[in-house]
């Protein structure tokens, strides 16, 4: 795919994610949302890029995310109204109020729910991929990836040579504990030691696109460095100068991006407004 078109398509998805999360933040502050909420703003280009690549490959993968999963759901085409309802604790939510923010699922987009035990989606995704031989993506945080069972599952996935992509959304934090305090190794090296392709890259969409040639052919792992803008859970910020990929892409893409941003901001605002009025 042409680089500019890919960037724009990905930006459009990211824009839906970003403006959705902006509304989430607003409604957390207004106490319209009253559940533990894990905002993915800052990290949205990972899911958005993966979804754009999958669309281009005409593949509808099985998706196994973890608690910070709004961007995954939205990027892969999950019904936004149903997610709003879910966050508001309504029966009409995508998981009928059972999933909240952390455990959402959608049969329409092949997205399976998460049980709240960090990393369980690692081996579960491996098993689903093995049993179906269907392209599968597991999204993990950099801390969840440390779970022993994630590593056991990865080793087996490599041995069985299944069409699995493991994406580590590496925001460097486990709540507030930095990676360097927790470990002196990288997941991309772990993948390589399991004899699977492993890469350590940035969340620039083009970096992800570069590796799309190997997707779903053999198991691979992408450790994608990214930034979480808001708190682990809730609406606060740890810092005001966190690097923001969304702003960077907006600047890079210029007028086209500004137009997309404006249009989607309005669209998402209205969506929330309408649901809140119900």
């Amino acid at each position: 795919m042409n680089e500019k078109i890919f960037r724009l398509k990905t930006f459009e998805k990211a824009s839906y994610c970003r403006h959705f999360e902006e509304e989430v933040i607003k409604n957390l502050k207004l106490k319209n949302i009253n559940i533990p909420t894990y905002v993915s703003a800052g990290q949205e280009f990972i899911a958005a890029s993966m979804a754009t690549i999958c669309e281009d490959l005409k593949i509808k993968p099985l998706i196994f995310g973890q608690h910070r999963c709004h961007s995954i759901y939205i990027s892969f085409g999950g019904d936004k109204v149903k997610l709003i309802d879910e966050l508001l604790g309504r029966k009409t939510g995508c998981t009928k109020g059972m999933g909240g923010s952390a455990s959402i699922a959608s049969k329409e987009i092949n997205m399976f729910g998460h049980d709240g035990l960090m990393g369980s989606n690692g081996p579960i995704g491996v098993g689903a991929c093995f049993a179906t031989n269907h392209p599968t993506i597991v999204f993990l945080g950099d801390a969840a990836a440390e779970e022993d069972y994630v590593l056991g599952g990865l080793g087996w996935a490599s041995t069985k040579n299944i069409p699995l992509i493991t994406v580590v959304e590496d925001n460097n934090l486990s709540i507030l504990t930095e990676k360097k305090v927790r470990r002196n190794w990288e997941m991309s090296d772990v993948a390589k030691s399991f004899k699977m392709q492993g890469y350590n890259i940035d969340d620039d969409p083009i970096d992800l696109l570069k590796y799309s040639e190997i997707f779903f052919k053999k198991p691979c792992l992408l450790n994608v460095n990214t930034n979480r803008i808001f708190w682990h859970a809730g609406a606060g910020k740890d810092s005001d100068d966190t690097f923001d990929r969304y702003e960077e892409e907006k600047k890079r893409l210029g007028e086209d991006a500004l137009a997309i941003d404006k249009k989607i901001k309005e669209e998402i605002k209205n969506l929330w407004k309408k649901q809140l009025e119900k």
């Binding site: 491996v126 098993g127 689903a128 991929c129 049993a131 056991g152 087996w156």
Partner: peptide, 24 residues
């Protein structure tokens, strides 16, 4: 299907296979 010695992961792998409805 032979699994590795990763017992915790194995329970997860089988759970994932269960989702495929192949009734492992």
């Amino acid at each position: 299907i032979e699994l590795s010695m990763a017992d915790v992961a194995n329970g997860g792998i089988v759970a994932g296979a269960g989702l495929s409805n192949r009734r492992p």
